[in-house]
Design a protein around this nucleic acid. Structure first.
Lengths: 240, 240
DNA sequence: CGTGCTGTTGAACTGGGTCAACCATCGTGG
DNA sequence: CCACGATGGTTGACCCAGTTCAACAGCACG
């Protein structure tokens, strides 16, 4: 299907599913009519808590979320989520959250109860595959994070994170020419990269000095995407 | 279903699915009759290569596998797989492998072509859920690895890995009283933990000195499981 | 009986952590 | 309108967990 989707709350989510699996117009419509409640979230607000049992799914209309857990005395970010993502889709089958789901900056989310999604998927093998596949892309991202954290030094690690986010934002039309907005602080990068905040600061400065990225406020730009990807050992295939 | 499964090649796999989602006797039978080719693998043998397109799934009858990738000049293990696991189930929907699938020690695998599995799942919403859920457990394990690698120091990191493996082996009846067999070398632990082999050696010695584990050859024993879990910040919920 | 792998140990080194300032920005309340 | 406290970014000095290099011992295997 190629119909230019209107700018409904669901449009980014559908656009994202399209990128993952082909959907027919009918299927898009069925997703669009899922009963949805829109909610606004503020920076740092916790939408779902670790160990809580989720009874609904969240898709991001605008803004960003991340999953966060405490390990020992350290705060660790497990994943970032961008508009069009459904960060806790897995709760449909495994309802217990294994991390907090937190707003990164002000954001708008759509809530959909598990019930309607389950009923929709029961009727459609193809949509089930699309949703399943969406969870598999999340899993592939996690595996890349394992590689990133286990195998790379600080500079490549941070570079990889930036490459990943740029690519994911491109697929939903929120990044162009390697340029995007994301209200991440250096603390977030530190918690996502297993580094101290001080060292993230120096690492970002190194990336800036090498003219690989520009980063002022929430505006991030990849100045030399190819060089950055080479440094990060990044290949975007896994994001499908 | 509670019928004592005979010791067929599939029995561990079915046992594992049982632990994840209830299956009826009928469903177990349908899995048992999936056309399967048995293969033997030797230590270090690569069953599937990174970037290769898989056309079949593998379940482990006996022995161990791991997924492995090169990041920069470092070798990184992304996951371990134990009997009953289906390590590349995700290739059913995302056929491209994002890592090598390698034998850890001699092992026996069952190969099932994608086609028969797809046809089985098309007929059964419930089985689809069970398989989907199996991939979600793998994803949860990856997320835990992210937390482990990003947030924990060497000692906790290695302890966590051991706790995870012990728990997973228990659910398929291959560990009892915290005691199990696994032909892992310290190199494997190093590659899975993002540590140097030398430091893994010293870390394991520390665990031994603290009387937390015993590890001779391929025989691993948790001497004080509760203390080890506390040190590792390990809670087994996510393994379902 | 060498050859190679795994485990072990010691010594020197370093990437990144910790601690402690300091600055700029910004929203808030007096 | 300004003083303020909070937050995010930056810098310097010192420290340490973990790396690297190198050597050696046990053992399995051809």
């Amino acid at each position: 299907m190629t119909a230019p989707t209107a700018n409904t709350p669901q449009s980014k989510f559908i656009q994202r599913l399209q990128a993952i699996a082909d959907l027919s117009d009918d299927e898009c419509r069925e997703i669009a009519v899922l009963p949805t409640k829109l909610r606004h979230g503020t920076d740092g607000e916790i939408l779902l808590r670790q160990d809580e049992t989720a009874s609904r799914c969240v898709f991001i209309v605008s803004g960003f979320l991340y999953q966060h857990t405490i390990v020992g005395d350290r705060s660790q970010i497990l994943s970032f989520h961008v508009p069009g993502d459904m960060p806790c889709l897995h709760t449909l089958l495994v309802p217990r959250m294994d991390a907090d789901l937190v707003c990164l900056g002000p954001s708008v989310m759509g809530y959909v109860e598990h019930g309607p999604i389950r009923r929709l998927l029961e009727r459609s093998v193809h949509l089930t595959r699309a949703f399943w596949r969406a969870t598999l892309v999340d899993a592939a991202i996690s595996r890349q994070w394992v590689a990133r954290l286990g195998g790379q030094a600080a500079l490549s690690r941070v570079a990889h994170l930036i490459c990943e986010l740029a690519t994911r934002l491109e697929t939903v039309g929120l990044a162009a020419e390697g340029c995007f907005q994301m209200p991440m602080t250096q603390r977030h990068v530190a918690d996502a990269s297993g580094l101290s905040i001080v060292h993230v600061n120096r690492t970002i400065q190194e990336l800036r000095q090498r003219r690989l990225i520009a980063w002022e406020g929430s505006q991030i730009e990849l100045l030399q995407p190819d060089e950055l990807r080479a440094l990060a050992d990044f290949t975007p295939d896994y994001l499908t």
